[in-house]
Design a protein around this nucleic acid. Structure first.
Length: 596
RNA sequence: CGGGAUGUAGCGCAGCUUGGUAGCGCACUUCGUUCGGGACGAAGGGGCCGCAGGUUCGAAUCCUGUCAUCCCGACCA
């Protein structure tokens, strides 16, 4: 391809609405343009990158026997109603774009394809003899994100590879899950990415195991915790650890203390000379349940620990046996609008009386009480007295009428000791989630009545797995991991072009001739080559080549008459002068071995 | 959804305080000189100043509303 024909539009100034380096560089390099918030056009250079990533993914999926398909993006509401997800995905904070057709029938734009694929599998797969089957597709997904940001990192329309597997039993699901894990690692490594596989929350989707693949980068939205020995790695949402030891409360004496204006753990402790681990803090939250009920929740935590909301959400769904859409702290305004007498915020105890809820207009009038094990393990502690500006010192669970149900609710943090080896300390890193694999179990096959006949002749729902890769996100993550002050430095395997031949001076006939010759020889060797034949000064072409990040550059300049060129490696910026024939041979060797 | 910021040419910005009909740099077009790290000179083209009301003889500028975009938060009482 000739640069003069490439519709290459690079920007010298950094667009004001891009924050992180990868987003800025993709805009500046002429790879993407924003159409509206969270929705981008992939320009020709970008499409080549995406196509290369797609090819790698296809090769690895095909290699483990997965079948490529293409499913519709418009989904009938009825399908999602059968799985029970329509309400949660379209109402309130739901992320599914939805619309009505001319007959008034409701449709949604697919954010994911479990419903469609499971229904199809139920129709087509009748016998255990047909199993296992893995299907995959690469297409655009639509999600009305609460807050799209950072270009392709979190967009509302994005390209995803999603795969779904169907099995006669759980052991077989595990086999495919492990094969996927290996395929994913090959995919990311072939794309030139440093990734970490971490334990992940499988959330309300349920299921046994789930693992995310994170591209490590400071701009990542996720926090991951790893042990130095490399054995443990988890998303903070899921991570477990041992909390630091609590400082025992010296006095066993039980008293109620006036604590005016000591509403936070911090001020309470500094004023009273306490350690936060001696205090139980109580959070009042409101859970919104899928059937529309509003459940007040009382969460007790050790004062030095923090709540992991994802764990809480999962625990609530399990306790209530119903899907909980979200959970958020109760505000003073909400209490007023419920017509409830004000609560002694800042002095709440785990035994806050249900009677406070008796006049609530739309809430369930009984607290659901949960506590983290680090809180229930305390034998003698401090907590609020349920009266403004008063705390109880030296109290215990039996005085409070017993322990609440104990569930892991605390946020693991860097510095905590690991579960597998308490000499290992958790370290934190930021990551961009580019892949996620799940063992779904039978949730969807049961809900959608997708059955097969097993070897005993009876009907049974499938065991299922699902496996995603964010193709467009992966492309931007690669830039985030591979760039410098001059621009992008694509890994060879996913670069839009592998080599760019730059003619320093287009007016110089020997230069032009040699460049044309190299260009056609590289192409003949099957190498994706750009020829910068623009009538620009050399500096402009060098800057653009650096910005768009082509891994290899051949500069045909002053020494063209001697048939000498410069070979420049983008990643190291190493420059070598050598005969044109040798440069050609080296590139064919280098690129041929690594990439074809 | 809450909080903050910003909307002026393709991109980056000034002008707004103190109203008088729009400017700079880059990019684009033409000509000339240049030609190895974002050249120089000359001449051009391109704007419903986000949108809608209002105030005023007159609004990019003041007022009201609205829309859009970006950032922070979704929080330990």
């Amino acid at each position: 391809m000739r640069v003069s024909r490439l519709m290459l539009v690079t920007l010298r100034d950094v667009p004001a609405d891009a924050e992180i380096a990868s987003h800025q560089l993709l805009l500046r390099g002429g790879y993407i343009r924003r159409v509206t918030s969270g929705i981008y056009a992939y320009l020709p250079l970008m499409w080549r990158v995406l196509s290369k990533i797609k090819s790698i993914v296809q090769e690895e999926m095909n290699a483990i026997g997965a079948l490529e398909t293409l499913l519709p993006q418009l989904h009938p509401a009825e399908l999602w109603q059968r799985s029970g997800r329509w309400q949660g995905y379209t109402a309130g904070e739901g992320i599914m774009f939805n619309l009505e057709d001319r007959q008034g029938r409701e449709l949604g734009l697919g954010p994911t394809h479990e419903e469609v694929i499971t229904t199809l599998a139920g129709d087509l797969l009748r016998s255990y003899r047909q199993l296992p089957v893995t299907l995959y597709q690469i297409q655009s997904k639509f999600r009305d994100e609460i807050r799209p940001r950072f270009g392709l990192m979190r967009s509302r329309e994005f390209i995803m590879k999603d795969a779904y597997s169907f099995h006669a039993n759980e052991a077989d699901l595990t086999t495919t899950y492990k094969a996927m894990d290996k395929a994913y690692k090959r995919i990311f490594s072939r794309c030139g990415l440093e990734t970490v596989a971490v334990d992940a929350d499988s959330g309300a989707i349920g299921g046994a195991a789930s693992q995310e693949f994170m591209v490590t980068a400071d701009a990542g939205e996720d926090l991951i915790l790893t042990s130095a020995d490399g054995i443990y790695a988890a998303n903070q949402e899921k991570a477990v650890s041992h909390p630091a030891k609590a400082t025992p409360l010296p006095s066993k004496e039980s008293i109620v203390l006036d604590t005016p204006n000591q509403k936070t753990i911090e001020t309470l402790c500094s004023t009273q000379g306490l350690h936060p681990s001696q205090v139980i803090k109580v959070l009042v939250m409101l859970a919104r349940i899928e059937d529309g009920e509003l459940q007040p929740v009382l969460v007790s935590l050790r004062g030095d620990q923090e709540l992991n909301e994802v764990k809480l959400l999962n625990a609530l769904s399990k306790e209530l046996g119903k899907m909980v859409l979200d959970v958020a702290p109760i505000t003073a305004d909400q209490i007023v609008s419920q017509g409830i007498e004000a609560w002694p915020f800042g002095a709440l105890g785990p035994d806050l009386d249900d009677a406070l809820l008796s006049s609530a207009k739309s809430w369930i009038t009984r607290f659901l009480r949960l506590a983290d094990p680090s809180a229930t393990a305390l034998e003698n502690f401090v907590c609020g007295a349920n009266r403004s500006d008063q705390h109880r010192i030296g109290t215990n669970w039996s005085k409070l009428g017993g322990k609440p149900k104990s569930v892991d609710l605390r946020k693991a943090q860097a510095g905590d000791c690991c579960i597998h080896d308490s000499s290992q300390i958790l370290e934190e890193q930021r990551g961009i989630e580019v892949g996620h694999i799940f063992q779904l179990g039978r949730k969807y096959s049961q809900a959608l009545e997708a059955h097969f006949t097993n070897d005993k002749g009876t009907q049974e729902p499938f065991w299922m797995g699902c496996y995603g890769i964010g193709i467009s996100r992966l492309a931007q993550a690669a830039v985030e991991q591979h760039h410098d002050e001059a621009g992008i430095s694509w890994p060879l395997a996913i670069a839009p072009f592998e080599v760019i031949v730059v003619v320093a001076n287009l007016q110089d006939e020997p230069q032009q001739k040699l460049a044309e010759q190299l260009y056609s020889e590289l192409q003949a060797a099957g190498i994706d080559t750009l020829l910068d034949d623009r009538n620009e000064r050399a500096g402009v072409k060098f800057k653009d080549a650096d910005l768009i990040g082509i891994p290899w550059r051949i500069v045909v300049g002053r020494d063209a008459t001697k048939a000498e060129v410069e070979l420049v490696k983008r990643s190291s910026r190493e420059v070598r002068k050598l005969p044109a024939t040798q440069a050609l041979a080296e590139l064919i060797e280098e690129i041929g071995v690594n990439n074809h």
